[in-house]
């Protein structure tokens, strides 16, 4: 966009009449603005929004219908004969029931928190040294860490599985925590490093001259300044771990001891004669958490989104 746009010569049909000067321009602007947000565009946008929302809405309505109704009639029949219940959610969240998904929800929480905290902290330390410390091979090492983002996790799964079996953590939370931490590190280091480089060097130099060690600078100066970047990566990693199926399926197995919600729901879809009353309520219990996180922290999330797009 280096070319200068030509000066406006034609003011458009609306300005061709008796009015002159700025009035023409304003009228045209109004007219164009109107044209660009035309009723057709609005109509098309509404149609698309409805199309995009109906599938979710259908399952949401279903999750509040009695199990017998779900299999007998379509969810849209609630418009004519409404019949709602909280039973499905009670079944899913029951403390003692064979159909309860509560253990898996707990597992999801237990898996997710360390899987977000560990890579954030390790990566912040590493990013700090890449950004503000001198050591031999620093730049080459940073490029290597950055490049590791291209490794698809599929190529790591089987060797890691036998490694975990050798050290006796296979099928435990540790295997899942460590895996998510390792897979999250390249992106985290890259994101946080970029952000740290934007902090003025004089700030760190001044603190160093005052006799502050790297540890002090890291805690007193860096962590507070890094909040937005930490939030961006934290939300990204949270959604990634919470929604992950492949890592959990490989390292956590299927039992309700370790497996998260995604695995439980996945196994339910495989059972014969889909149990929609469980699936619909379970799906929404698992959806509500990331949806709330997303809606409340949207601005941070969008920032991390593009940078993290090659992960996985």
């Amino acid at each position: 966009m280096t070319t200068t746009p030509p000066p406006p010569q034609v003011v458009g049909p609306a300005g061709a009449g008796a009015r002159t000067g700025s009035g023409d321009v304003a009228a045209t602007l109004r007219a164009t603005k109107k044209r660009l947000t035309s009723p057709w565009a609005t109509f098309a946008a509404v149609v698309l929004a409805v199309l995009w929302t109906i599938p979710t809405f259908g399952l949401l309505v279903t999750s509040f219908r009695p199990a017998a109704d779900i299999n007998a009639t379509g969810w849209w029949t609630v418009l004519t004969s409404p019949n709602f219940t909280l039973e499905n959610y009670q079944t899913v969240m029951a403390v003692d029931s064979s159909q309860s998904l509560l253990p898996f929800i707990i597992n999801s929480v237990v898996i997710t928190i360390p899987s977000v905290v560990l890579p954030i902290f390790l990566a912040t330390l590493a990013a700090y040294s890449f950004a503000w410390m001198q050591f031999r091979g620093r730049d080459a090492l940073f490029v290597a860490v950055f490049a590791l983002q291209v490794v698809p996790i599929q190529v790591t799964l089987i060797p890691l599985l036998s490694l975990y079996a050798d050290i006796g953590v296979a099928g435990t939370f540790w295997a899942v925590w460590i895996s998510h931490t390792m897979f999250g590190l390249p992106l985290a280091v890259f994101l946080l490093h970029n952000f740290m480089r934007e902090i003025p060097g004089e700030l760190i130099e001044a603190a160093r001259v005052d006799g502050a060690g790297h540890v002090t600078v890291f805690f007193r100066l860096m962590l507070p300044l890094l909040k937005p970047a930490l939030a961006a990566f934290g939300i990204y990693q949270f959604l990634w771990v919470w929604n992950d199926l492949l890592v959990a399926l490989t390292f956590a197995g299927s039992s309700n001891q370790v497996a998260p919600m995604t695995v439980a729901l996945f196994n339910l879809t495989g059972t014969r004669g889909s149990q929609w009353f469980l699936l619909s309520a379970g799906a929404f219990v698992s959806i509500i958490v990331p949806a709330l996180v997303f809606l409340s922290l949207q601005r941070y999330f969008v920032r991390g989104l593009l940078a993290g797009s090659v992960k996985g």
Binding site: T56, W242, N243, T262, L265, A283, I287, A291, V293, F294
Partner: peptide
């Protein structure tokens, strides 16, 4: 839909 898991 971006916030929903692929499984969901």
């Amino acid at each position: 839909p971006m916030a929903i898991s692929f499984v969901g």
